[in-house]
């Protein structure tokens, strides 16, 4: 099984839902040097994260290199109630991507 690329939890509150996600990604800045070879490690980082509620994009995050490794993010969506589908996807600078779907619990 492929390594899990992201983990999402959506919990419904009164009138809104809290979405918490961890995206598993090295987030290399392109500024670091490898300790063994002394060569610069090429940049590899997530650029875009999109959060969808019922297939409509509600939040779009643009990320730079200064977001920590395995980025964590938490956002709140109004009007999302228990059972609503939430989808989170990311795209990095090398064109890799991943997405996952959860329902608000």
């Amino acid at each position: 099984m492929a390594k899990k690329k992201l983990k999402v939890r959506a919990s419904g509150k009164k009138g809104y839902a809290v979405i918490k996600a961890i995206l598993f990604h090295p987030m290399e800045t392109g500024l670091r040097k490898s300790k063994e070879t002394g060569e610069v490690i090429p940049a590899h980082y997530i650029q875009e994260v999109s959060v969808k509620h019922k297939d409509a994009e509600v939040i779009k995050v643009n990320m730079g290199i200064a977001v920590s490794k395995n980025p964590y993010l938490s956002v709140e969506i109004d009007g999302a109630v228990k059972g609503d589908p939430i989808s989170i996807s990311w795209l990095d600078n090398l064109g890799e991507q991943a997405s996952t779907d959860v329902t608000v619990s």
């Binding site: 509600v58 995050v61 977001v67 956002v75």
Partner: peptide
């Protein structure tokens, strides 16, 4: 990072 938040957030 920059978060573009839609209307119902």
């Amino acid at each position: 990072s920059s978060y573009n938040l839609g209307a119902n957030t």
